[in-house]
C-alpha cells in the first residue's frame, strides 16, 4: 500500500500505538493485584494488632477468621478477573498460590516456630518471597521491590525492635495496602 503520511504523522501514530500498548500492559500488570494487596494488607494489620492486644487464643481465632475471609475474597476476585482477561499466566498464578500455601504450611510445620513472633516472621518472609517471585515472573518491578522492602522491614523489626514487632508488622501491612492503592490510583 502507498503511504501518504509525513514522518511527523508517522511519529504521532507510533506514539498512539505505544500509549495503547502501555495501557494494556499496565492493565495486565495491575489487574486485581492492587485489590489483593489492599485486602491482605488490611488483614495483616488487623491480625498483628490482634497479636498485640488479644490473648494468644483469641488472636489465633482472629487470624483464622481473617485468613478465611481473605482466601474467600481472593478466590472471588480471581474468578471475576479471569472473566475479563483470559491468559495462561492467570491460571498459573492460581496454581502458584495454591502450591505456596501447601509448601508454606509444610515449612511452618517442619520448622516448628517457638512463638507467635517467629511464626509471623516466617509466614511474612515466605509471603514476601512469593511477591518477589511474582514480580520477576510477571515483570512487575513494583511488586518485586515491595516484597524486598517489606522483608527488610520485617527482619529489622524482628532483630532490632522485638518488643514492637507486632506494631512493625501492622505497619508493613498498611504499607502493603498503601502499595495496592498506589497501583490502583497512581498508575493512570
Amino acid at each position: 500500500m502507498d503511504a501518504q503520511i509525513s514522518p511527523r504523522q508517522a511519529e504521532e501514530a507510533l506514539t498512539l500505538a505505544k500509549e495503547a500498548a502501555k495501557q494494556m500492559r499496565r492493565a495486565l500488570e495491575t489487574g486485581t493485584s492492587w485489590a489483593y494487596l489492599v485486602i491482605w494488607g488490611v488483614i495483616w494489620t488487623l491480625g498483628f494488632l490482634g497479636n498485640q492486644f488479644l490473648t494468644p487464643k483469641h488472636a489465633g481465632t482472629a487470624w483464622m477468621v481473617l485468613d478465611g475471609f481473605g482466601i474467600l475474597l481472593s478466590f472471588g476476585l480471581g474468578v471475576y478477573y479471569g472473566q475479563r482477561v483470559r491468559y495462561q499466566i492467570g491460571a498459573q498464578m492460581a496454581i502458584f498460590w495454591g502450591a505456596w500455601l501447601v509448601y508454606s504450611t509444610v515449612v511452618v510445620w517442619v520448622s516448628h516456630p517457638i512463638n507467635a513472633m517467629q511464626t509471623g516472621l516466617l509466614i511474612t518472609v515466605l509471603a514476601m518471597f512469593a511477591y518477589v517471585v511474582i514480580g520477576i515472573w510477571a515483570r512487575s518491578p513494583f511488586l518485586g521491590w515491595l516484597g524486598v522492602g517489606i522483608t527488610a522491614c520485617t527482619l529489622a523489626g524482628y532483630y532490632f525492635t522485638p518488643l514492637y514487632f507486632n506494631f512493625v508488622m501492622a505497619l508493613t501491612g498498611l504499607a502493603l495496602a498503601a502499595g495496592g492503592l498506589y497501583m490502583r490510583l497512581g498508575w493512570k
Binding site: 500505538a17 500498548a21 494494556m24 495486565l28 482477561v85 483470559r86 491468559y87 495462561q88
Partner: peptide
C-alpha cells in the same frame, strides 16, 4: 491493534 499486541500470545481480553 497495539493494545491487543501487548497481550501475551494466546491471551484474549473482554
Amino acid at each position: 491493534m497495539a493494545a491487543l499486541n501487548a497481550l501475551p500470545p494466546g491471551a484474549e481480553v473482554d
